[in-house]
Amino acid sequence: MIQVLFVVLFGAVAIWFAYKVFTTASMMRSALALLFSMTAVGAMFLALQAEFLGVLQIMMMASEMVVMALFMIMYMMNPGGLAAMEMTHQKRLSIAVAVVAGLLAVGAALFGGWPLATEAVAAPAGQTRELGLEIMERSMLVFETAGVTILVAMIATTALAIRRPA
């Protein structure tokens, strides 16, 4: 019961901040709103008893969004949002597409007929251990691929962003 309460509460917080991301005029506020939306999603992970993932989400997203805030201020024409300006296009189409996609996903959630599992979840320490074994044994190749992808992205990003002599 208390779990439902927490999931609903953090879910509402996540949705509220996600809504604020695209409705506020100030860039800093919208970056911070995204940050708190992600933090609320991390708190939902905690409420869903995935402790390691929840704490990881709370940590990673906060650092990502702090960096994002920095870049937004660097590259925005009007970061403070002191003068009202239009930064959207094809608004009607976007709303229509988003509503249709959202309704489809909600419908799938409501009428999916999920076969709920009955077994209990392992304790947090056991979960972290099992996750580590999964990474290092069965899914090692997947994890290695993720690592190599990170390396490739690092090199590509540096090559993109480096200042070339004119």
């Binding site: 800093m28 402790e51 704490v55 990881l56 940590m59 702090v66 947090p124 979960q127």
Partner: peptide, 22 residues
């Protein structure tokens, strides 16, 4: 008492940067 206490410490310390940015 958290099973992921050391990671939690890291996570909480990131919010110092968020606080100073705000």
């Amino acid at each position: 008492e958290l099973a992921t206490g050391a990671l939690w410490l890291n996570a909480a310390l990131v919010y110092v940067a968020v606080a100073l940015l705000m």
